Amino acid sequence: MTTALADEFETHRPRLFGLAYRMLGSAHEAEDTVQDAYLRFSGADRGAIEHPAAWLAKVVTNLCLTRLTSARARREEYVGPWLPEPVITSDGTLGPLESAEQRDAVSLAMLVLLERLTPTERAVYVLREAFAYGHREIAEALELTEANCRQLYRRAVQRVDERRPRFESTPERREELVRSFLTAARDGDLGGLEQLLAADVVWESDGGGRVRAALRPIEGRDKVFRFLAGATRTFMAGVELTAIEINGSPALAAWAGDALMSVVVLEVRDELVGHAWAMMNPDKLDFVRRQLARA
């Protein structure tokens, strides 16, 4: 590939990464997918590519569909809950997140919901919701009829909306609650932690069999509190907690010296922690480590 074409591809790379990440929920697989698209772009007949942005989006979308199909079998064998890979978003990696809608599109909660869709439903939903593609453009990218795409989109919206939390919190309240959680955890204030938990709170830990983690979601304030109390006594010695922005939301990072041990994202419902996702699998923390190293 000539330098000019390579430079042209680089102008599309951030958008392609954002598309692939939303499709796959995996930063390292998104990087691999974009690199595969680069190789295809370099080997393609440039004269046959009238609109590079649309051509590349189609290539990345279809590469993601192939990956999602094979990923389903791997995730069924995954040890414990499978959670998306976290991404620091304060550096613009997933583009500007200036509105609630933009932040929601890359949130951990949304990526978890997208896992419930079929690969094709997910592609239609992401292209429509996150990238504002028209149904005709989506049909061309997926080589489906426009009517089929509309049907898939309606089905995807219904499946996502029926599982979305009904009560939203303001960004300020989320930041305040995360700060309170951080302070209580640092101080070993178990009573303070308990007061921040909703009655129906759920805590999910993704260790992937690599590190010790709960193999099933922990549900209910009492059970989550007992889990946190045990974790505080057992693991908090020598661990430092810091605030970090993950997938458009305030979150916690747990450090043992210079080693990143976990990233925890808190979902706020009715002014309390309604759901917590703790990413502990070292492989899934690698992208965040690299982001921090570049900062």
Rank of each mutant, 00 (worst) to 15 (best):
A4H: 11
D7V: 14
F9A: 12
E10D: 13
L16D: 08
V34P: 01
D45H: 08
H51R: 10
T61Y: 05
S70E: 11
E85S: 13
I88C: 12
L94G: 02
P96W: 06
E98G: 13
R103V: 15
L108M: 11
A109D: 07
M110H: 11
T118D: 06
T118W: 08
A123W: 10
V124W: 03
G134V: 14
H135Q: 14
A139P: 05
E143H: 13
R155N: 13
D161R: 10
E162Q: 15
F167E: 14
R174M: 15
E175R: 06
E175L: 02
L177A: 09
R186L: 01
G191S: 09
G192Q: 02
G192S: 02
G192I: 06
L193E: 09
E194S: 13
E194G: 09
E194I: 14
D200W: 05
L215M: 08
R216G: 03
V224F: 00
V224M: 03
F227T: 11
A229E: 15
A231Y: 04
T234W: 12
S249K: 11
A254W: 01
A256P: 00
G257H: 03
V268A: 08
L272Y: 12
M279D: 01
D286H: 02
R289F: 08
Q291H: 11
A293F: 05
R294P: 02
A295M: 11
